[in-house]
Design a binder for these strands. Structure first.
Lengths: 646, 646
DNA sequence: TTGTCTCCCCTTGGGAGACAA
DNA sequence: TTGTCTCCCAAGGGGAGACAA
């Protein structure tokens, strides 16, 4: 549990915690429970064991040397047979199979595919027992809110106090078509469970689907797809539908996005037409106009033990729960909570004790047992508001406008750029290839775009000067911070500095982010440390070595680059190559290709060229670059379809 | 629960109980538990719902108006919200999918197939929580026995008392190759869970496999097989291996029989050779030389409630459990029981109370909970002895000798015959076609065999005069009665009469069965009623109508009747017909074919000929015929490959 | 403000005999 | 002989305040 804290807190901590047991020896993440008489260790023999494309996961727990003296029922069998101090393995948690993403074709006209956004892209976004909750005190006072339980560490709680209107909230409404199976999945809740960077497209959005990258990832992930497929590099599509889902057993969230190819979009693009009429921002993200009320808390031993209930942080109660009638001696009310599946959970919320505190009593232990929560897990309460489905992107579904914009910028070896990353991966990004729409030029623009698309002139925009894009990008990322809990918020401008006095915090958080900072209100996190501290010289060296290795060539073929699906081409979509006589896979080419989008058209250099003074500059860039969740690097190669970095 | 009792008790009751809720409205089989304050109804919304060939089942329970006052934990949630007398639905029992039978080919030489004997053939043989048990009182006294828990009704207990040597029994031994997956499945136990008429072939037995009937049944059962297959009507085989299995979740038993074609057998048959050298009886059944010790008891409310344990019938204790040291004030011992999967269960067996009685206390409730037993279920204890794998037949694997014998007999319309049936189906036999080796001539032999096989002269034997076969047949069926519990045994000669005084019972049971009657020792059953009572005139009429309808022709083709697999013929085994140009399926023929075995060779009548005075005679035959598990009917048609009845 | 602990009390369940069918 | 009931008691869980970090 000594892994350095990195980034600006928020949901990043969820993954950080789950990555803590990197040694994989089952010790650092082991559970020591009631260590007074015997230690019970939860092993992880099969953690992350790959099994036919399925990923086995393990649920971490917190090492505790202290603890309660009573044992839980689960430990009971061990106690009987154990001598003092003896250890045993308790398999009280079933490991759950991770469903790989699926591709299927609903009809020749509509390409429907299900992309497990959080599962496939992160692989570790598990253990959420999301709750979408309503609150009932009596027929008059009623409040709907959402609640998510995950694995979030928190030692710092936000000091921002904010009075909330905690009554008469309505259920966050999603139509049956856009919700979960039961039509009750809440968008806020879904996002709070998903990878922070996940943005969902909206119905009707114009997007560019990149099936090559999708297939490639599926294949490399050991999915069920085998053989070679004839797929175009990208398909201009409209979003037919977006459905939010959650796995029944694990509460892992995923989305099912239905696309239909739209030849008009391609035609528009070929004719040099600009972007879509709607241009809220280039992600299509629509900011909420209402403020969500939510809080997150890591469960303590007392929260999860059988004696007593859940101690609710005072500020969280005021922000998320309906106010109690404090004139009564023991004010109480009943909360009705819905999880991701629409299952209702009832909790008795009472204000009692000396000194007074807020507690959830009746019903809480049932929830703990059913969701198999242990000390160290976290729970998130999210009060329901009316949610609006936002635009966005996955790795394989790129907003049309963003796609067009990316064509207007060029990258050449040595050029610096920045992109958002998952903070926890900063120490080992494993990102040697990125898509042009994921990155942004920064610093000096050494090469003016040598690649010009038919519409480049019209929409050409320098990323570096496109300030609105930058802030939008951050607003998007910060939006996910709101589900976190913290007392002290640090601006990412100061994240490499040491902690500040508490009364300085608000001033800092109000600098430079405007409205998006309101999401930080509930942030919970430890001190923000620059990833610089976790980047040892040796790790940098390893990273350098990795990028100089021969690039991997994937067996994905495409027949006509930049050629969207039309006619017979579309007929062959996803059909395995069998009798087609083509040249073998171009393994001799120095082609780094993730999404099949060519940046080499009109560009001379197609070979992998190592950065002339790479090592120093990379280190410098890394030092400067890892700020919060923004990764700054430089282009090493620009080759067939992607940008090699860093 | 007013369904008429039918047949001679025994395992028939298992299916009878599960058929009780024929209305399917979920009411007649509902569970009313602790009706004092609230009724809790177990519904069966999806009972026996077919789902892609899988059969969903439901576990019945007994309606109880009385009961204990304490509630089980499962009812607890309902109690909170219920007013007095209010009802709620409790789904405390998961319905379990029934695995359909499988056919696969291990190698071209060895046809290995797995036939789920109990599941496929009965479809309802579920809910057994079999236990194979050892008994430990101390290191000195140790006893192994078997225990099965099923759904058996019993109101009568056998009065026969028999002292048993209850100590130092050995584990019933089966080699790893012939047992369950873990090599611990007991043959006795397996048989006690299987359909009563199931007989397993032995390793090395000569059998005739009838793939056409097998495929036909699989197809009509909605199995995974589609298309048409080139299969011969029968294949002369040797039994390579017999493996006993049980489904993990349901304890449903099935067997995996491995066969290998044996051309020598066919050659022998063609040369007019006789039967096999071993001729214990024509089923190849080897009678046990040791007496099994077992008992069965329907669980009472007290047995399944949380207060107290399982009350063991005194005689059962003496017969199956090791004797206790009655000099002690509270004699007790520990029993270690193994279920079908080899899972061990420990029970404390104590002799206490005033008056004294035998109880299983510690460990019992854990078993009840794990196996989800409720009042009305039954439990069977089977003491382990050395078991010997017996010969026998399934519907598709016919013992060679029996097959040969069946060729020696002929049937023509109007001829009477009898066959064993599942008692519970007597009211609706759904048996309009049978195989010649399943039936036996009775009454006047109106037609002397017009069908003569090459070896008929040598082994020709009249079924009606083959007394040993008759008794063997009954011995086989009675063998399964031993697992049942009853106080009053009725001879099948008197089964249509009303109940007799108890002291008459022993005399009756000793008439006419000789050694086979020892299996009745533990029979448990209600009064034996003739199925005549359940055969209303309308049902007979319906049956008559059914058999006069145009016979169904199945899409099973066979290339050469009576031609076993040889050479290329064998190569095509199970391979779908694709390019073969044959005449269409002979749907115009009045061919009733179940196993593809022709009885029409040398026989003039191939058309469906209705019995001249059918209705009256059928009724008469039925009246006479349904005696215990023996069904007497008459031949209606003799056509291409089977005998039409009744 | 809230995590831990202890105390109290109720529920539950295991195990015993009483009693009667 | 055995099914049901009641009693006893221990274990465990829910809920409360005490206390301290």
């Amino acid at each position: 549990m000594t892994a350095p804290a990195a980034g600006c807190g928020g949901w990043w901590w969820l993954r950080r915690m789950m990555m803590d047991d990197k040694e994989g020896d089952g010790k650092s993440g082991g559970l020591w429970w009631y260590s007074g008489s015997c230690g019970v260790e939860v092993t992880e023999e099969t953690r992350r064991r790959r099994c036919g494309g399925a990923r086995w996961r393990w649920r971490p727990a917190v090492i505790r040397d202290g603890g309660l003296k009573r044992r839980t029922t689960e430990v009971k069998p061990a106690r009987v047979d154990l001598d003092e101090g003896e250890e045993t393995k308790v398999k009280d948690r079933k490991e759950t199979e991770l469903t790989p993403s699926r591709i299927y074709r609903a009809s020749p006209a509509a390409i429907t595919f299900s992309l497990s956004l959080s599962s496939v892209l992160t692989g570790f976004c598990n253990s959420h027992t999301g709750l979408k909750t309503k609150c009932n005190q009596n027929p008059i006072r009623r409040c709907d809110f959402d609640m998510v339980c995950g694995l979030i560490d928190l030692n710092i709680v936000s000091d921002e106090a904010e009075e909330s209107s905690s009554t008469n909230c309505s259920i966050s409404g999603f139509g049956p078509g856009s919700g979960c199976g039961s039509g009750v999945c809440c968008l806020e809740l879904w996002h709070s469970c998903a990878r922070p960077s996940i943005c969902l497209p909206r119905k009707g959005n114009a997007v560019v689907y990149c099936p090559q990258g999708h297939l490639e990832q599926l294949q490399s992930a050991g999915g069920c797809l085998t053989g070679e497929f004839t797929v175009p590099p990208h398909v201009f599509c409209r979003v037919l539908d977006v459905k939010l889902h959650a796995e029944v057993g694990t509460d892992d969230v995923y989305a099912q996005v239905s696309l239909i190819p739209d030849p008009k979009l391609e035609q528009k693009w070929r004719e040099g037409g600009g972007g879509e009429e709607y241009t809220e921002d280039d992600n299509g993200v629509v900011e909420r106009t209402t403020t969500p009320h939510m809080f997150c808390k890591t469960l303590t031993a007392s929260d999860t033990c059988t004696h007593g209930g859940f101690s609710v942080p005072r500020r969280a109660t005021e922000d998320c729960f309906p106010s109690l009638d404090y004139k009564e001696q023991r004010p109480s009310q009943e909360l009705v909570a819905k999880d991701l599946h629409g299952t209702e959970w009832k909790f008795r919320h009472i204000y009692r004790g000396q000194p007074r505190r807020h507690l959830l009593t009746t019903g809480w232990s049932a929830f703990v047992n059913k969701k198999k929560l242990v000390c160290g897990d976290a729970v998130l309460f999210l009060r329901g508001d009316d949610g609006v489905l936002r635009g966005g992107s996955s790795e394989f579904i790129v907003p049309y406008n963003r796609f067009l914009k990316s064509l207007a910028s060029s990258f050449s070896p040595g050029a610096s750029f920045k992109m958002r990353i998952e903070t926890e991966d900063a120490g080992d990004p494993r990102q040697n290839r990125v898509s042009p729409w994921e990155i942004e030029r920064c610093g000096l623009i050494s090469d003016i775009g040598t690649f010009v698309s038919p519409l480049m002139k019209r929409i050409r925009t320098s990323f570096a000067s496109n300030r609105s894009y930058v802030s939008s990008n951050f607003a998007e990322s910060m939006r996910f911070h709101k589900v976190l809990q913290g007392q002290e918020i640090y601006s990412f401008h100061r994240c490499s500095e040491t902690s500040q006095p508490e009364n300085d915090t608000r001033n800092l958080t109000s600098v430079g982010f405007g409205e998006s900072l309101r999401f930080n209100r509930d942030l919970q996190g430890q001190e923000i440390l620059s990833n610089l501290q976790s980047l040892s010289p040796s790790s940098v060296l390893r990273f350098q070595q990795a990028i100089t290795q021969a690039p991997v060539t994937y067996p994905v073929r495409y027949t006509d680059n930049m050629n969207p699906l039309t006619g017979q081409n579309r007929q062959d979509f996803f059909h395995p190559l069998k009798s087609q006589l083509e040249e073998p896979v171009l393994s001799s080419k120095n082609s780094w290709r993730l999404f099949g989008f060519s940046l080499t058209e009109g560009c001379n250099g197609t070979k992998t060229s190592r950065c002339p003074n790479g090592e120093d500059r990379v280190v410098v860039n890394t030092k400067v670059g890892v700020i919060g969740d923004v990764f700054v690097a430089e282009v090493v190669t620009v080759s067939d379809g992607l940008v090699g970095l860093l």
